[in-house]
């Protein structure tokens, strides 16, 4: 498959994977640590959504499904499916060191491994997923935090995971 098209497809799949898993496991609902809450309040002050702000803060402060997807792609590139599972194990250790229960990270890692395995039949390589995941995180954190947080807040509302206030 053409590399550019593959990277675009991989970026979309990664974005959906980690946003859905993270939202389902309640990242927008509450801030796990103090740093995440400060980021959330700051994003809200700049015209964003508090739930989206907590989401971004939690992604920044501990390895969640975003880091899980990235680590799973790297592990899969190096060692195949066992690499993805080892990545889930390492993400779990990292979660516990960051005072995070770790459900989102490990689940995201395993689902990402499954997605990479399934899409390898249509010609997507793990390298495309690494690049795609970097692009996906860039769209969440890098372009316009306030506007993206509004979108994330809407997704959170749809999953019934909006911040309780």
């Amino acid at each position: 498959m053409n590399e550019v098209i593959g990277i675009i497809i991989a970026a979309i799949l990664c974005w959906l994977n980690f946003v859905i898993v993270d939202t389902y496991f309640g990242l927008p609902e509450q801030s796990g640590v103090r740093g995440a809450r400060i980021i959330g309040k700051d994003v809200e002050k700049r015209g964003g959504d508090i739930a989206g702000g907590f989401f971004q803060g939690n992604i920044l402060c501990s390895p969640d499904a975003s880091a899980g997807t990235l680590m799973a792609s790297i592990g899969y590139m190096l060692l195949g499916i066992p690499g993805g599972i080892i990545a889930a194990f390492l993400v779990f250790i990292g979660n516990r060191l960051c005072a995070d229960p770790g459900y989102a990270g490990t689940t995201g890692c395993l689902t990402a491994t499954a997605i990479i395995f399934l899409t390898s039949f249509i010609g997507l390589t793990p390298e495309m997923f690494i690049v795609g995941m970097v692009i996906a995180i860039f769209t969440i954190m890098g372009i316009d935090q306030a506007k993206v947080s509004v979108v994330l807040g809407k997704i959170a509302k749809k999953f019934n995971r909006h911040a309780r206030e």
């Binding site: 066992p82 080892i86 889930a88 779990f92 770790g102 490990t106």
Partner: peptide, 17 residues
Amino acid sequence: LYPTPIIAIGILSIFLV
């Protein structure tokens, strides 16, 4: 259910690799 199987398959795949 969590986290026992995650630890088990993680360590097992290190051995298999």
